[in-house]
Amino acid sequence: MLALWLTESDTTGFFLFLFLLVMSLLRWRFPKLGATVMLDCAACILTFFVWPYALYGLILILFEGMYRRFYFVLLAGHVFYFMDYFDLSYALLLAFGALSGVFLSGWRKEQGQKLTIRDEEAGKYYELEHLQSDLVATIPQIERMTVVAERARIARDIHDNAGHEIVAAYITFQTARDMLDGADTDALELYDAALARLNSGVNKIRETAHNLQTVTTLGVESLLEICEKFPVCPVNFSVYGDTSRIPIYVWSMLESCLNESLTNATRHARPSYVSVELDATQHLVRLCIENDGAKKSKGGMGSGLRNLRHRAIAIGGTFSMDMGEKFRMICVIPIKEEENESINS
């Protein structure tokens, strides 16, 4: 069309060309103005009476209209009403313009679909990467918790078993001392020295057992501490059953669940209460966290919750949520028999 206008050196043709260019750029800039393609049609048909080559502009318009899937533009095919004769080559050019637009539009749609698929795949990849980094970060935490738990167990054993036995022996020796008042002086001195050393030993054992006690809280205490530190509203924390059977890695999982749930409640909801229930039986642990702020939040499951679900599944448990009137998150983790036995032993 530009070539035609240059050949003809016609100002009308130039203005038509410029007008089509402006309208095309306008639609490129504001895609919602697709219907303005009919204005272009009208401009071409009106200009035809002054500059006959204007009808060639319809080829471009048909192309653009079909590319933008604005099918009313096909009405431009009625242009032959304005012409005295049927020009086959011109009709073929019109058809070519329309078909090119259709093909290009199809290609663009396919490209868009592929891009969407690629974006979804990339999203999954990044989510898995995030989960992996979460798991990697959990390993040292579990290691630390295991060390602390073992230390606490040793301290408890020394204090409860060995410590009590030695104290009982010390008391027995002291009673026996009263019964030995008439005995040999040398033997009594030796007995008193042994008793003093035993007393010193009892004090050292007590001190050692006290020093072995961990500053870091573990298990139920840890969950309770998290609940107490929650700043938004009071948290009602209840424990049922014997929690001593719960292995360390399960405590790590329960801590993560509680942390994530309380963080989400702070960020996305405005709860007036939060209830946390920990139910431990011989074969499973169930943690249920509930708050009444969910109705104010519209979001779905975030990556943090999805990662928790993956982690729960990985250790044979389940992780479910209910985002109805109240937000409720339930995590159930089985405790295997051999773990129970190892804890008991």
């Binding site: 203005f15 410029l18 007008f19 402006v22 750029l25 306008l26 490129w28």
Partner: peptide
Amino acid sequence: MFMIVFLLY
């Protein structure tokens, strides 16, 4: 018209 074309582009 040229101005509009360049501004839009």
